[in-house]
Amino acid sequence: MIADWPGLKALALGMGLPEVTDTTAWGNPCLKAHGKMWCWWSPYVDAAVFKADFDEREMLLAADPETFLMHPHYAAHRLMLVRAGRIAPDWARARLLRQWRDAAPKRWLKNWDGQQVQTGGV
């Protein structure tokens, strides 16, 4: 299980996805994909922040409140929090890949997907 920002950051960078930058936002460390917030740790609670639509967030909060939580700062946004020490690496990889793809410009992603098929990549 991933317990902290260094662990999540290492997992995310270890995925080897292009167009990812190690930077800061609002004074806090984060990773951006295609120039958009992609991966970060909440400065309000000991938890990772992931993108999720409101329906999915409500479903996850109801299904597993020991793992998923909400902080008032994030309530109005399509985001969810996952408690430190409860982040399954396989779940995080799948979530991050989906978020990375969602952030990519469609034309860029089409070209990248074509290259992956040709080279047998991701």
Rank of each mutant, 00 (worst) to 15 (best):
A47P: 03
W41D: 03
D55S: 15
G85A: 08
F50W: 02
V117M: 11
E58S: 13
R93T: 07
R57Q: 13
F54N: 12
A103D: 04
K106P: 13
D4C: 15
N28H: 14
I2V: 13
A25F: 03
G27H: 05
G120M: 06
I2T: 01
T24I: 05
L81N: 01
P29G: 06
L81V: 02
M80E: 00
A76M: 09
P72E: 01
G35R: 12
K51A: 12
H73P: 05
K9Y: 00
V122Q: 12
L11H: 13
L109C: 02
F68P: 03
T119P: 13
D113C: 04
G120L: 09
A63P: 07
A75M: 09
G16C: 10
W40H: 11
F50V: 10
G35W: 08
A75F: 06
R93M: 09
P65L: 14
L96D: 00
E66W: 05
G16R: 10
E56A: 11
Y74L: 09
L96M: 03
Q116P: 00
K36R: 15
D53Y: 07
P105H: 06
Q115D: 14
K36Q: 15
A103W: 00
L97G: 05
A75Y: 03
A10F: 08
F68K: 07
D113M: 08
I2N: 00
A92N: 06
W26C: 12
A63V: 10
A104P: 06
L8N: 03
A84E: 05
A52G: 11
A94D: 13
N28G: 13
P29C: 06
D102G: 15
D22H: 06
R101F: 05
G121H: 04
W112P: 11
P72V: 04
P89L: 05
A88R: 13
A103T: 00
A62E: 07
K106R: 14
K110I: 10
T67V: 15
E66C: 10
W41V: 04
L81H: 02
V49N: 04
W5D: 04
I87V: 15
W100M: 03
A76N: 11
V45L: 15
N111K: 10
P18W: 04
C39M: 02
D113I: 11
E66Q: 14
A33F: 08
G120R: 08
A88E: 12
D53M: 06
E56K: 14
R57D: 00
G120H: 02
T67R: 15
M80V: 11
A52Q: 07
L17F: 09
G114I: 02
A103C: 10
W26P: 01
W5V: 02
V49F: 04
K32S: 12
R95M: 13
L109P: 05
P43A: 02
A48R: 00
A52K: 08
T119H: 14
R98I: 07
G85K: 14
L61E: 04
R86M: 13
T21C: 11
L79Q: 09
A12C: 14
L60R: 15
K51L: 08
A33N: 12
V82M: 14
L60F: 08
A10Y: 05
L81T: 00
R95V: 11
Q116A: 12
L69P: 01
G120E: 07
P18M: 06
G7V: 07
A104Q: 09
R83I: 03
W41G: 02
L81E: 01
E66I: 03
W38C: 15
P29E: 11
